[in-house]
Each structure stands twice: as C-alpha cells, then as structure tokens.
Amino acid sequence: MSYSWDSEEHINWVLQLATRLRVNGVDVVLDRWDTDLGSDLSLFMERAADTSYRIIAVATETYVKKADSAEGGVGYERKMVTPSLMADLRGNRVVPILRDNPAGRIPRFLGAARFVDFRDNPYVESAYFELLQDLHGVEPTPRPPLGRNPFLAIKHDDARQTVREDPARYVQPAFSERVVFNYDNNDGRYVIGAADRSFTISFHTAGYGAIHVTSDPSDIASIALAPHVSRPEEIGDAGSYDASSRVRTAHVGDAILLRNRNEHWAVVFVEEVYVRDTGPTGEPQVVFSYVIPAVRSSDFTDQ
C-alpha cells in the first residue's frame, strides 16, 4: 500500500483498511508490518517496481501533491513505479482510492485510471466490495455467455423479427439504472442485474399510476412493498417488510423489495405508470429505477 503520512489518524485508517483486506485474503505489504527500526525505507519503497505486486495508492490531497511534485517517499515510489507503467500502458497495476480528497484528483502519472471512492466517513461498503473484487480478479459485472448468431440459426428474412422479439432486448445488466418499459411486451418481464445479482421483475397492469409485481419468476424468492419510499437509505432493513404475498401493488412513489434465490436484494422505485393512451407514447409503460447492492445484505442504509 502506497500512502502519505498525512496524520496519525490517516496512518491508522490505512492500517485498518490493510488489516481488513488481509482478513479477506489479500496479502498486503505495508510499512507498519514489513519494516523495523533501522530498516532501509528506500529499499522497501523500491518493491513498488516489482511487477508481481499490485499497488493501492491512497490518493489524499497530500499524496497527490507529493506525487505530482516528486516529493518525499511518495515521489520516490512514483519514480520506482513509472517505468513499469510506461511499459504496460494498458495495465491496471496501480489502483487509486480516494481519501480526504474533495476535488477527486489522482496523481498525474496515473493518467485517467479508474479509482474507488473512499471519501465517505465511514466509507460505504460497496466501495470496499468493489476494491476487494478487483484485487481478487472477480468481474464486478460478469460477461454474459455468447449467444447464437440469428443470421446463421434462422432464415435471413426472419432474422429481423426474431431479433426484435428476443427477450435479451429486455435486460439491463447494470446494478443501478433507470428503465422505461412497455409492460405489454415480453409477458411483462424485465431482467435487471447479472449473474447471481440478477432479478426478473414480473409486471402486470393495475390501472393508471399503479402496477402489480409478482414473485412468479423462478429466480425470485420473495417480494415486499415499501410505501412512499424514494431512496435506498429510507428502507433500512429490507427483511423487516412483509413478504408473505405473491403479488404486490405499487403506486407511483412506492418501492418494491426483491430477494432472489441467491440471497441478494434489489429495490425498485416506481416513478411513473401509464396505461394505454395515457402516456407520452400511447403504450402501457412503467418507468422505474433500481439499486442492487454488491453484498448479500438486507441493510440498505449505506446504499
């Protein structure tokens, strides 16, 4: 872990993060553990040049300033790591995480590298989970299997209609998004998320401003209604809501809580519902947004 000694509080924060990562199977190298009194600190920092290591760069304002101006230990580590980065411009060896950094800047030598945001205090669990996934090589958004080529599987003249009616049209693999869906199509079913964080939402008409949602799809374990909820943090514990019914009727401004067979949770916020001829397109339509937490937890407080 590469960091600047901003304060005793910050040094202890880094120690706490490194400890948690080790508990979760990441073999962290940290100066607090890997140097003793009298140790050659420059030799320790030169380990950053070893391409068998990945580097977590804790990018505080002080860290960024020192890296950009080549000051102190941070500047020395930058000197050590830059040649290997230049040799592998597509690599991901350095993982910047933001901390005490209101402007959200990362050192110039890292270019436009993707970072993880740890600026909240305490940091949100989804940020830690994202970092842990990356360090263990787990894809945050799993790649779907390759499907068949419709132009080889069927007659060319039928391909356009087949593609148009393909259920894959009604899939949004992102873990948070806003969706506009004509619930007359695809039997009212729309899939959100991916892999074990995938949920099939089954919509059915309930009149203007309302929509039925059922637990009929095989990947859904339970559904519950959270009336007058528009943000994840308003939910609290999703497991405390009644999930005894197969059908829930949500009105605009309500939320639906879904639990899938893999024990993941999702919250779906109903923003607009139209029946035929009442909406902007003249079609039955539901507009919803959703959030699927990264961890298997019913606690939405930090989402």
Rank of each mutant, 00 (worst) to 15 (best):
P280F: 03
V58W: 00
T141Q: 14
T141K: 13
G73S: 15
L85C: 11
V163I: 14
E263F: 12
V295R: 06
R108A: 15
V28I: 04
H228L: 08
K79T: 13
F115I: 11
S39I: 10
K155P: 02
S42I: 15
H204Q: 15
H264E: 10
T278F: 08
A238W: 00
A243E: 02
R143W: 09
V138H: 08
D34T: 10
T249V: 08
S39Q: 12
I192S: 07
V29M: 06
D117F: 03
Y76P: 05
A49H: 13
I292K: 01
D34W: 09
S198H: 01
L85D: 08
L98H: 01
M1V: 04
R99A: 07
L225G: 01
Y63D: 07
E263R: 13
S2I: 03
A210W: 07
L85K: 05
E130Q: 13
M45F: 15
G137R: 01
V14F: 10
A48Y: 13
P145F: 14
M80F: 05
T51P: 08
D277R: 15
R189M: 13
T141R: 15
F199G: 00
A70G: 12
I192N: 08
P140K: 12
L132P: 02
V58N: 04
S202F: 07
F118A: 01
R114N: 12
N121Y: 08
R99M: 11
V64Q: 10
L30E: 07
V275M: 08
E77R: 03
V268H: 06
F129E: 09
G73C: 14
P217V: 07
K66Y: 13
A57C: 02
I223N: 01
A194T: 15
R148S: 15
M80L: 09
K65P: 01
A224F: 02
T60W: 01
A112R: 15
S84H: 10
I154C: 06
A103L: 14
S176V: 04
S84D: 12
V270H: 04
D88Y: 11
D196S: 05
P107G: 10
F269C: 09
T281H: 13
R32Q: 14
P150H: 08
V291L: 09
E233K: 14
F269R: 03
R160V: 07
D36G: 12
I192T: 07
R246M: 11
V213A: 08
E233G: 09
L41W: 14
I154D: 03
P173Y: 01
I211N: 00
T51C: 14
L17N: 06
S218G: 06
V138T: 12
F199L: 00
R143M: 15
R169G: 11
V286G: 02
R108W: 12
F181I: 05
L85S: 08
Q133Y: 06
E271Q: 13
A224K: 01
V26G: 01
